[in-house]
Simulated scan of single mutants.
Amino acid sequence: MIVLTAPTSDIGQQVLTRLLEANAPVRIIARDPSRLADDMRSRVQIVQGSHSDTEVVNRAFFDAEAVFWLLPPNPHAESLEAAFVDFARPAAAALKAHKVKRVVSISALGRGTPFDKTAGHVTASLAMDDLLASTGVALRTLTMPSFMDNIARQAGAIKCQGLLSSPISGDLKMPSCATRDIAAVAGHWLLNGDWSGQKDVAVLGAADISFNEMTKIISEVFDIQMRFEQVGFADYKARFLRHGFSEAMAQGMRDMMFAKNEGLDLGIRRTPKNTTSTTFRQWCEDVLKPAMQD
């Protein structure tokens, strides 16, 4: 039995699709299972609730071989520790209590760089990784850069203003990955039961790319005039505060992007094993184009 957390999220739904295509037995933890397609719900066991809840994770992890762990966003959390580490404490205890054999978790790049203690959400995610590792479970921690799919959140500005923006320098080349490639890697480890130990697995996307290069590609794909604008870090934080984020979570976003601008995501050497297939141009064709049409 494979237990899937956050199955209605972008990554979670894609992982679930892969598991069902392989006819794997799946149990999901979901606050609102109705958000899943009917054909998916009919093929899985459902434990309704939050995977921060002790009773929920104990019911879900009973007799489980593997767990896919994905933290849901909590923009209103009082602290980063509460949002990441405290959220995961019940699950960590349940992993040990039920002797779960393997966990595949979603995390971030940055461990071992000069910025990993001051990188906001990334620092908190690494602390959560340490908590999961402390259970002794066999663990594959998928460490990611920023997602290409985050660009789709700017579809309105791209379409109406020809604008792409970030606090990160437009010239800085960094890894960027598509969520579908993350799901493919996660599915591989979840379906392959022949592994043990604890290891970080980087998922770096097809190539390092700058925001200026992204802007050029978007311009070419959509045949529109585009420009990139680097926003200030204070303004970037203020955007999250305007959208209802707590002070701690907005500051964490600012600190994470500041660290990325300093090289947080550049500490892992690119290899064929950590390079995935989806290029930014292909992602624009397959994902951004439909988002622009909404």
Rank of each mutant, 00 (worst) to 15 (best):
R239K: 11
Q45M: 07
D171A: 12
G156H: 14
T118S: 09
Q45S: 10
I106A: 04
M249L: 13
D265Y: 11
L142P: 02
N261P: 05
L266F: 11
F240G: 02
M249H: 01
V26A: 03
I158S: 02
I2Q: 03
L4W: 04
F228W: 09
L19V: 06
C284E: 04
E21N: 07
R140I: 12
G205W: 11
K216P: 05
G170A: 09
Q198I: 03
L4P: 07
D53R: 11
Q154V: 05
Q198G: 07
A60I: 10
C284G: 10
P175M: 10
F222C: 04
A108N: 15
K199V: 13
S107F: 13
A133D: 08
H98R: 04
R89Y: 03
S165R: 04
A155F: 09
G156E: 15
V203Q: 01
Q45D: 12
L20D: 06
F280H: 08
M174S: 07
L95V: 15
G156P: 02
D171Y: 10
F61E: 03
G197H: 09
L132W: 13
A186E: 12
P7L: 06
A108F: 15
E55S: 11
F147N: 01
A291K: 10
T54E: 12
E65P: 05
A24P: 09
P167H: 03
M40Y: 10
S165D: 03
I168E: 02
A152R: 07
G187V: 11
G263S: 08
R35W: 01
